[in-house]
Design a protein around this nucleic acid. Structure first.
Lengths: 335, 335
DNA sequence: CTGAAAGCGCTTACAG
DNA sequence: CTGAAAGCGCTTACAG
């Protein structure tokens, strides 16, 4: 059995109240007493039981993090940003994968509630109503990361997907591209996909770029789906001069498809992504894409949550993380 | 304020003991009483406080998972395997990144101890002595994943790195390669790197393959380091016919370097990795590598820990996960 | 079948 | 400056 506060008290010849005060650095303790206690702590190897402490204090220093799928690089980066900041601020993390599965997500919320989490970060493709309802009941400080609470109850931290996608279209248009293909993820199942779609189509409109339905396809952000979608597009009689992919995974899949068709990137077809990943930068040719600072997305969410927990006023209902176009080798200038 | 067991008891007109029995499905409760309680639970939205429960029961259903860096694909996969199994078995997870940093690792162990974790999974490049000492004191069921406790105190789950590396050398040798380069990670800082190195060099010896020091370089498992190491090797007068890379990240970096030198993979230089990743399979050309079943590595660790916690006898001191060579397009047959 | 009570390991207002 | 005691929200052996 490991040492309890009682054991330390006995060894030091004081009450458990005094031991507690020493452990928690409450001032007014006689230096000699303190010394005795510290000595007893050392001898017993005592570490306070955080569970007992939490029960008394009604706080756990634990944050529930529900993430779509830790395995996807985009989310992995976000989660690392969250973990680093939260751990710096003295919090620890219970992590669950939601997989956009309502049951898993609700179970995670119940867990966070029962575990008395001091705060919650929800990271998913979109923010569903059933989770909002749970949260309303739970009444725990919560930040929505990478999607948005449309009711405005919970603050959110998101990418500047609309703007970055718009700029990307403008960028390739400036290089002479008018025949533009677009492989996006389903826009009704993902907030990112919706915003990226909105940005792309707005730019099409403003720049008078015709939409060719033959060149539009929907994947699911995986490499394989990018490959499949590109195959479909390349099977049409006329081919686009560039394909925009909703993320770099799909761009990498599309690249493979293009090469398999005996075409070259960017000589025959240019390729861009809308969310830069390390592997996109190391691909040959490297993928021109958008750096969304995923790590910062997580870090900012964590800082915001930490403020909310300490009752600091958080005025922002929505923080939009900036972005940057990362120029790779996958785009050719036309004429 | 959310409902406590007392509120439910009052509403149902019973004692808290009875509510507790209903919640925990203790048989001998009168069906009508049970019904009343269930009704009161529903009306109040009561969820038992897991912290209070843990304090009384002296178990938290929480597992501390210390992982090297959740951001690296190899570890991400392991962590997902752990999370899926543990969550199926009713456990939740506190996750920390160790970064091979002794302070971070020790802090994580203290956290797991104070949070009264029922079990621990340690996933690092190697298993350091300071952590073993902490664990000895903590006396918590622990599994070491992807490295090994050389003292044999804690069971470990590892890849078959020695065998897979040996086989890989044999495979390329069978294809006619005798001039073999090797980019590994530092063998004294990582158990995997050591075993992979041992396998490669044993095969060199058995197959009478000469080691050319010009073709040996040490990276750190990142793409960039693979790139740098390959550049170094390619700068020598004579070039190898194939380069073995300790993992696929380094292989992808090396590929970039080879192409930048105006050479082709596999026509001029073949390339293999020793740990297959999805991105390696989608690279062009795809990387011949070893599938180490990283997800299973995590899953098996989790199952083993779960058994240990429920006092089932775990006889294995070491589980070695099998592997499979994944043939890609990055190796040419010579003559 | 059900309730009163002890106790899990802490913290802290209250007295001294 | 220090200690006795209450209490955080549960579970369960004990009585009835």
């Amino acid at each position: 059995m490991s040492a309890k506060i009682k054991d330390v008290a006995k060894k030091a010849g004081v009450s458990i109240a005094t031991v507690s005060r020493v452990i928690n650095n409450v001032p007014l303790v006689n230096p000699q007493t303190k010394e005795k206690v510290l000595q007893a702590v050392k001898e017993t190897g005592y570490r306070p039981n955080a569970i007992a402490r939490s029960l008394k204090l009604q706080k756990t220093d634990t944050i529930g993090v529900l993430i779509y799928d830790i395995t996807k690089p985009y989310y992995t980066q976000i989660s690392r940003g969250i973990q680093d900041i939260l751990s710096m601020e003295g919090y620890n993390i219970i992590l669950c994968n939601g997989d956009s599965n309502p049951d898993k997500e609700e179970n995670a919320m119940d867990l966070f509630f029962q575990k008395q989490c001091d705060g919650i970060i929800y990271i998913g493709k979109f923010f569903p109503d059933n989770i909002r309802q749970k949260l309303d009941y739970m009444n725990t400080p919560t930040v929505i990361c990478s999607s948005k609470d449309e009711t405005g109850t919970y603050p959110s931290v998101v990418n500047s997907d609309y703007n970055s996608s718009y700029e990307m279209v403008k960028y390739i248009n400036d290089l002479g591209h008018k025949k533009i293909g677009f492989i996006n993820a389903k826009e009704d199942k993902s907030y990112c996909a919706k915003m990226r779609g909105n940005g792309v189509y707005s730019a099409f409109r403003d720049l008078k770029i015709d939409i060719n339905d033959d060149w539009i396809a929907y994947g699911d952000y995986t490499m394989y789906s990018g490959y499949e979608c590109a195959k479909m597009i390349l099977a049409k009689k006329e081919k686009p001069s560039v394909i925009i992919c909703g993320n770099d995974e799909m761009a990498i899949g599309a690249k493979k498809a293009i090469i398999e068709e005996g075409l070259k990137v960017p000589d025959d077809i240019s390729l861009v992504g809308l969310n830069s990943l390390e592997m996109g930068r190391w691909a040959v040719p490297s993928i021109t894409s958008v750096n969304n600072y995923m790590y910062d997305l997580g870090a900012v969410s964590a800082r915001m949550l930490s403020k909310m927990i300490s009752k600091e006023v958080v005025v922002e209902k929505e923080v939009i993380i900036s972005h940057e176009i990362v120029k790779g080798e996958s785009v050719k200038k036309i004429k």
